[in-house]
Design a binder for these strands. Structure first.
Lengths: 185, 185
DNA sequence: GGGTACATGTAATCAGTTACATGATTTA
DNA sequence: TAAATCATGTAACTGATTACATGTACCC
């Protein structure tokens, strides 16, 4: 166990390799696209760079073609497997942040015109709605092949996008602080 | 308008300065702590570094003490104000990602022992519960002083933490794929 | 008057992104 | 065989984090 600091990305790669091994970076990319990418995305270049790092530290084994595309084939080493399994036993110590640009804009919304706030809210509502549908479609497609844990993560994604879509719909029809909350009084 | 690429952090700083001006980096830090920090956090060093960058490009004005702590006092320039207001009119083009470590671990949960999944779920449930309470307390404290838009962002934070807490509670009592879903059949 | 907590900043490092570049395969 | 698309990689840059370092005020 070398003293290499593993980032979340590292474990993500270790986990994906475990699911697919032996596999290439492109295999990882495809799997990310239909699974983790829905709640944790990053450019493909990292899926090429990170395995190299992990292999240098003995957590993955690397086998490179000598001809043609010279692509690299990865497998978990026993050390990599151990690191992954150990990581899975440690409870996380914080809650993930929303880091949502729309939310940031809403926070400063008192500076903006009402129509701009409404436009933003409508855009966000539609985006979350779209994601919601995409997730539901995906859920059906992989219901047979995915693990129950993977289906569970999709379920949280579903609930979150539902909550967000509803929230932004609220904001769009009833912008905060614009005095249209109760026309009666 | 110089051709400087502004990151979300840049706008965040511009917005905060707008709320507090004139202000020091430490003022920003305190405000972040009780507001945006709840859904978009970063180390204090950025709140010292970013205003310097913005001042170099003419979006903030900087006034440094010559004695004592030599601290810097920032204000929005007309350009900074314009940049902020323009940004607020552009709808965001994506949904923020969850990027939650717990969710990542759950995704790979089929590799872990049931008890580890349960431990993680319980930890997450408690963390989100704690956040939920903290947000509710904060909401009461600032209900009079915050803008309606700011209160709205807290409301989304509330709903999200509620959904997440419920989800993880589900997982804890009923780990996916462990066959305890319906004891009857 | 020494310790502890608050306040302010900078230097060094690095993960992650952007951009570039080219190889292979299909299709028209 | 040209064009488009899929696949594979690397180089360069930089925002963000980590770590360090010190100044000021308050408290016992």
């Amino acid at each position: 166990m070398a003293d290499l600091s593993l980032t979340p990305t590292s474990y993500l790669v270790l986990g994906l390799v475990q699911m697919l091994e032996p596999c290439t970076s492109y295999d990882l990319k495809r799997l990310v696209g239909v699974s983790i990418g829905n709640f944790w995305s990053f450019p493909h270049s990292q899926l090429y760079a990170e395995p190299v790092r992990l292999a240098e530290h003995g957590l993955l084994s690397e086998e490179q073609e000598h001809h043609g595309r010279r692509r690299r084939l990865y497998r978990l080493t026993p050390q990599g497997d151990a690191a992954l399994r150990h990581w899975l036993t440690v409870p996380p110590d914080g809650v993930g942040e929303l880091r949502d640009l729309g939310l940031l804009k809403l926070f400063f919304g008192s500076l903006a015109a009402t129509e701009d706030v409404v436009t933003i809210a409508e855009a966000k509502r539609d985006l979350h709605d779209g994601h919601l549908r995409a997730l539901e479609k995906l859920h059906q497609e992989v219901a047979e092949t995915a693990t129950p844990e993977q289906l569970a993560t999709m379920e949280l994604g579903r609930r979150w996008n539902k909550v967000a879509a509803d929230f932004w719909a609220d904001v769009a029809t009833n912008p905060p602080g614009r005095g249209t909350t109760d026309p009666a009084t």
